[in-house]
Structure formats: structure tokens, C-alpha cells
Nucleic acid binder design. Structure first.
Lengths: 191, 191
DNA sequence: GCCAAGTTAGGACAATCGTCCAAGTCACAA
DNA sequence: TTGTGACTTGGACGATTGTCCTAACTTGGC
């Protein structure tokens, strides 16, 4: 807990703030205030704001990888694993209602800013995409697993966007149920 | 064409720029540069930046209403009308690939800024939502039309988000095809 | 106890932000 | 012809932005 370096604290605070208020709208002063350090202290750890963004994307990538491999261990069948993915919408529904999906909203913002970190941010999506794709492949080797992965990914994104726009948690549960049914129907048709 | 007032030009330019680079990232200087007027001239037409945003949302609402009633006239069956909605993804695929959905990305940004115009922006979604809901009601009076409308809306949003994140137009066509099939299956089951 | 390296604080910096204002231009009514 | 009101200009304003710098502090090896 307390063996975290200042750098870690900065990245952690930036991670939260970028999610809750967006990258551009989060200023150095705001991060400094949260971490309770001087504004000038930043430039000993990071040269630019973009460098902080890269660090944030880095830890998000690592956390995502860890989460996916944990799901891989805890859920024994590919169908259960995909279901586990679908249900993060439920798990994170409170935050999603307020701030949307951390991955989707970041990619959307960086696209508008035409920011050089776009490819790095996209890797967060790619992580889920390839992981889901591998699960679908295990279900049916002849299926176009990547298309199915993108399909699930897109539906999750849409749910997060609308749940946030309408501040509606019930809608999340509604759509998760539909996605579960879709997955069951798919499995029944293929196995 | 040339009978547009300066105010109209400002709103028009702001509309495009808010879509392409986001609301916060678009500055007065940038709009002024585009319209080719002095920066100071703004405050004869608008008191604050938020007022411009409200005007932009206003014209978007009006344009959307006009578009929906046009679809209502051109397409004679509710199914054709819903299909028409689905296919704006194809029509606007080039811009969606770059900037995502104009409605979804605006609502997402305003949510992060905790901006007072959030309810106004949400009305853009509501317009589509109630229109789609009415179409579904015409297909089947016993259906939960609103759930179906939200479902289609969410899937469109997801497609736009991922198409932008991956700069992938082909994915749009792929998913539109799936949505068409979903609609056909639904109609076949209910009629 | 001392020095070097790593870390921090606080403020200076140029640029840009949204906002506002005084002066000027223009068209048209009296 | 003159006066009036709508419109436009260019710049000033205070605040805030990301960036950078210097001086002070802390720490560990000698």
C-alpha cells in the first residue's frame, strides 16, 4: 500500500480523473491537487502531459491483461468466459452510468483530438477483441471468431453509451440479458 | 444560400467543429477563423460559449426532426422506416469512421464535463428513441416498443464507436447486415 | 559528518482561454 | 442631411493552461 512511489500515485490519480472528466479537461493542477504534491514536481517524473497519458494507458493495458487471464483461470469453458465479459457491464454499472466505458470514451476523445496516442489506446480494445475471438474459436473452429468478438464488443459499447446518456442502470441489465440469450442461442446452434 | 445571417454561419461552423474536434477543444478563435469574422463579433450574437452550444443542439434537433418526418413520408411501412434508420450508418460511414456518431460523442463529452446542456443533448437521442418506438408499436402493439427502440439505438452506437476506434468502414457494413437480419427475424416472428 | 543523487516546492514563462469593451462602419428612416 | 440602431472590428482583461527552472530538502554511502 504505502510502498507506492509518487509516480505511481500520479498515474493512479490521472487514471481516475481521465476517466471521470476526460483527458483534455483534466489539468496538471487538478492532478496535483488530488495527489497533494506541487505542480512543479510533475516534470521530474514526466516530461509532458502526453507522457502521463501513455503511462495511464500502460497500466490500463496491464490491468486488463491481468483481468483477462484471471477470467481464463476462474471460468473453465469459453462460453462462461464470454459471459463473464458481458457481465462486467453489470459489475461496473454504477460507474458506467456516470462516465461510460473507460476504453470507449478514451478512444472517442483521442479521435477528436487527433491525438498521437490513439493507436496505444486502441490496443485496449484489441486486447478484449483477440481474447474474445480466441474464446469463440474454441467454441467453433469454423466460425468467423473475430466478427463475433467485434459484435459483442460493439453491443457492450452501445449499452455503455446509452446507459450514460440516459443515466439508466436498468437498461444495462435489460441488454445484458439479451446478450446472454444471444450467446446461448449461438452456442445451441453451433454445438 | 447567401441570405444566411452571420449568426447562422457561426452556428453552422460550430456544429461542424464540435462534431469533428469536440466541444471543449473547439475555441472561439477557431470558429472565428472558420467563419472569417473577428473574435469580438461573437458577443454581439452570443453571450457565452454555452449559448452557442445550445444553438447548435437546437439546429441539430430541428434537422433531426425534419429528417425523421421525411423518412416517415418516403418509407411507407414501419419496417422500412426502421431499416432506413439502420442504414444511416452506411450513408454516413465516412464521417463516422473519423468522428463517431454526432449524438453519442456529444453526450459522452458533456457527461464528462458535467455540462448543464446534458438534458438538451439527450433530447437528440430521445427523438430517435420515440420515433423508433412508434414504428415498433405499429408492427406489434403488444411489444415493448421502447425496449426494441433502445436496443437498435444501442447497437448503432456501438458500431459507430468501434468503427471510429478501429478506423474500419467494413465493420459498419458487417454489423448493418446483422441488424437487418435481426429486424427481419423479429418481423417474421411477430407478424 | 559530508557529499552526491534523487526528490520536492514554489514560482516564472509564454500562450491561450472565455469574456468584455470602446470605437468604428454601414444601412436606412426621418 | 442627419441621426439611429444594428453590426463589426481589434484589442484588453484576468484566469488558467502546459512547460520549465532554480533553490531547498531528504536520503544513503563513505
Amino acid at each position: 500500500m504505502s510502498d507506492k512511489t509518487t509516480r505511481d500515485h500520479i498515474v493512479e490519480a490521472a487514471d481516475q480523473l481521465f476517466y471521470q472528466q476526460g483527458y483534455e479537461h483534466t489539468s496538471f493542477s487538478h492532478i496535483a491537487e488530488t495527489v497533494k504534491i506541487s505542480r512543479g514536481n510533475f516534470y521530474h517524473h514526466f516530461k509532458t502531459k502526453d507522457e502521463i497519458l501513455n503511462a495511464v494507458i500502460g497500466v490500463r493495458l496491464e490491468n486488463t491483461r491481468r483481468m483477462l487471464s484471471q477470467w481464463e483461470n476462474e471460468e473453465k469453458t469459453p462460453v462462461d468466459r464470454i459471459r463473464r465479459f458481458i457481465h462486467i457491464l453489470i459489475t461496473n454499472r454504477a460507474k458506467i452510468k456516470h462516465y461510460g466505458c473507460p476504453v470507449g470514451t478514451l478512444c472517442t476523445e483521442l479521435a477528436k483530438l487527433n491525438h498521437p496516442a490513439q493507436p496505444e489506446a486502441r490496443r485496449l480494445f484489441t486486447l478484449f477483441r483477440t481474447w474474445l475471438s480466441r474464446q469463440f474459436e474454441k467454441i467453433d473452429h469454423n466460425a468467423d471468431a473475430d466478427e463475433l468478438a467485434m459484435h459483442i464488443l460493439a453491443r457492450s459499447q452501445g449499452v455503455a453509451t446509452l446507459a450514460s446518456a440516459f443515466s439508466d442502470q436498468k437498461f444495462i441489465k435489460q441488454e445484458v440479458k439479451l446478450m446472454d440469450e444471444w450467446l446461448n442461442a449461438y452456442v445451441k446452434g453451433k454445438i
